[in-house]
Nucleic acid binder design. Structure first.
Lengths: 208, 208
DNA sequence: ATTACTAGGCCGCGAGTAG
DNA sequence: TCTACTCGCGGCCTAGTAA
């Protein structure tokens, strides 16, 4: 609760200004009792987190350096955690030629969603499942819904825009993975492997 | 405490991987009892924050989406708070000619610290104390220590590199403010007012 | 070794109320 | 009105211990 109150003060003051308010008002905003707010404010003051001036009919509070630092430390920790990777490296691996078949099926929908007609085939890159998650954490995929032909049905896929060696492309993820999810498939409007002169085990770098 | 534990898991797993550990180990790291860790982990699991697999001789934990989202929300809040202003606007106001006198005294030291010889005079800009703090929050000032001549003593000053209309300069802050701290003084190696054709009340923009 | 139950104590919360 | 004290209750913690 103490932390919540400190954050509330930080937000209301924009870190630096002074906030004219009352314990009742804060209590309502945070859904705690007026008494608790009073007590917690005193605690925060004792801890050197805030400055607190009581006057008849209300109080003025402001963050002190220690309080700002406390929050900034938390921010630093979270920033390190959530700072998404800007690059993703992996090695070229051979696919099973499946990609070509599937891309043909989704071709029109991909064109519609991404603005380019995909080359019929995927560049398969072996990397690390966890790195992939961290790399894609901050981007929302473009989803293409599944559909059915007279023969069979095709599941939904997700596309994430990426840049491969200067070419705009996308990571394509089937909703139901066909293989090991340490391998990702990349599409573009050109034959990436040929254009970039890639062979098995060559290192490729993806950017966002 | 619950929050601390969630953060601990997030850090140890890098958000996505699985952590092999034991309640005792976590307890030591967080300075709480093994029993509390056990209970809190169960709570977090019930709340859908983590996944928890108990095996003989230890346990494996991983964050679930809800847990990551919780932390990311906190991150977003703090990010908004700590995202420093990139620009600072203010209006030109007249000084009292004092600046010229002082700059002369500190000239050599400023040259040494900043790499330019300051024009003898300051551009005084009226803005907002709080905006100034927010603008300067993420930069460390260059400090010039005070000194004394045979006549009198001069206090320490702090310099913050800024860009004014394309010119590299600095905000100069005396340790003991001579005037209203809603007014800041800017120096550069040219006569800013003349070079930029500024008159009283014109708006100026500072960048970092 | 482990995890996690039970029991008991402490601490924080809110209701009542004084100033 | 305001803040903040006292006090009783409940939830959270840890110690002991079973499995």
């Amino acid at each position: 609760m103490k932390r919540g109150l400190l954050l509330y003060i930080a937000e209301k003051t924009g870190l630096f200004s002074e906030l004219q308010t009352s314990t009742t008002r804060i209590a309502e905003a945070l859904s705690v009792s007026q008494q608790s707010v009073s007590r917690l404010l005193i605690d925060l003051e004792k801890g050197g987190m805030i400055e607190r001036k009581v006057s008849s009919g209300g109080l003025a509070i402001a963050l002190k350096k220690k309080g700002r630092d406390q929050l900034q430390n938390e921010f630093t920790v979270l920033k390190r955690l959530f700072h998404p990777e800007r690059k993703l490296k992996g090695k070229v691996v051979d696919g099973f030629g499946e990609g070509k078949y599937y891309i043909e099926k989704y071709k029109l929908k991909i064109k519609e969603a991404m603005g380019f007609t995909p080359f019929p085939g995927t560049l398969n890159i072996k990397t690390d499942r966890i790195k992939v998650k961290s790399f894609l954490m901050d981007v929302d995929p473009i989803k293409i819904n599944g559909f059915a032909t007279s023969d069979r049905s095709f599941g939904s896929i997700e596309l994430y825009r990426v840049n491969v060696g200067g070419v705009a492309g996308a990571i394509i993820k089937p909703e139901r993975t066909r293989h090991d999810d340490n391998v990702i498939e990349v599409i573009a409007d050109v034959h990436l492997r040929k254009k970039m002169g890639l062979k098995e085990n060559n290192v490729v770098e993806l950017k966002k």
